[in-house]
């Protein structure tokens, strides 16, 4: 009954391969629907888009915004979270504000961002940092609170100053939780940038600010190339997966004690 690793891997391939074959067969049967995406056409579209450099460029543009927005959010949220976690009165007074804005999705802010900053990169970066801010700040606060009291008291007994305490006890103790926050934040940031680019594309008549989301919208609204939309979707998925994997590896390397 217990299957070997190889058997389990083989099982894993069965259903996806079967589904792709079924999809291809269906698409070939329904050739009257000319635009229906089928695997073989998606593959040629992928080769085209990657070969011409369009897709890599769009991904780079989107990634640039994600990293920019993420950096802004981290620079604000992590220090703020550290202060909030350490100083009770700051937390009590700021928490209502954070909790009031947290349920508002980043995409809901987009119309305001467009109003304030236009349809360019600034609005996109703003949306990304808004989306990334909340998981970062909340997990930083939680991380600071999870630092063992014994460690803090031990350090305090030995006369460690506040700044040293923060650097050598609190920060390393809170780091695993901050890492979790970073992973969540990067995930939502990537989702938010696709949404923002899509919506900007939809509402500004496809201006040339670029990015994968915008590219998808152009394929939808102007050239109607569904195969290319599917290629973009797959690319979005791959980037999301790769981002999470890379960040997880980097965090594991930075914090060997969490493994």
């Amino acid at each position: 009954m217990t299957a070997t690793v190889a058997q389990r891997a083989a099982r894993g391939f069965m259903l996806p391969v079967a589904l792709i074959l079924l999809w291809q067969a269906l698409g070939m049967l329904m050739h009257d629907v000319k635009r229906m995406p089928i695997p073989s056409r998606v593959l040629t579209a992928a080769v085209d888009l990657v070969g011409s450099g369009e897709l890599p460029l769009a991904i780079m543009q989107s990634l640039g915004r994600v990293f920019g927005g993420f950096a802004v959010a981290a620079l604000v949220a992590i220090p703020l979270g550290l202060v909030m976690g350490n100083v009770r009165s700051v937390e009590r007074n700021l928490d209502p504000l954070i909790e009031s804005f947290r349920p508002i999705a980043a995409i809901a802010i987009l119309p305001l961002a467009i109003l304030w900053m236009g349809t360019g990169t600034a609005a996109a970066v703003f949306i990304v940092s808004y989306a990334a801010f909340f998981p970062l700040v909340i997990n930083t606060v939680a991380g600071v609170k999870r630092v063992e009291r014994n460690l803090l008291q031990a350090a305090a007994t030995m006369g460690v100053g506040r700044a040293t305490m923060l650097r050598t006890v609190v920060l390393p103790g809170a780091l695993p939780s901050i890492g979790v926050g970073m992973r969540i934040a990067l995930g939502v940031a990537w989702t938010a940038i696709i949404a923002a680019e899509l919506a900007v594309g939809a509402k500004s008549g496809g201006g040339g600010s670029g990015g994968v989301g915008q590219m998808m919208f152009v394929f939808y609204a102007y050239s109607v190339e569904l195969n290319r939309i599917v290629v973009c979707m797959i690319a979005v998925g791959c980037v999301a997966y790769a981002l999470d994997r890379l960040l997880r590896a980097a965090l594991a390397r930075a914090m060997p004690w969490t493994r």
Binding site: A3, R11, L15, P16, P37, I194, L198, Y220, L226
Partner: peptide, 27 residues
């Protein structure tokens, strides 16, 4: 068995956010 069979599809689709489906779904 079910997990082995279905999990690759789930893990393959999961990174594609719902929002990325909007253009195709619009069509």
């Amino acid at each position: 068995l079910t997990e082995d069979l279905v999990d690759p599809i789930v893990e393959g689709l999961r990174p594609i956010s719902g929002i990325a489906w909007i253009p195709l779904a619009l069509f």
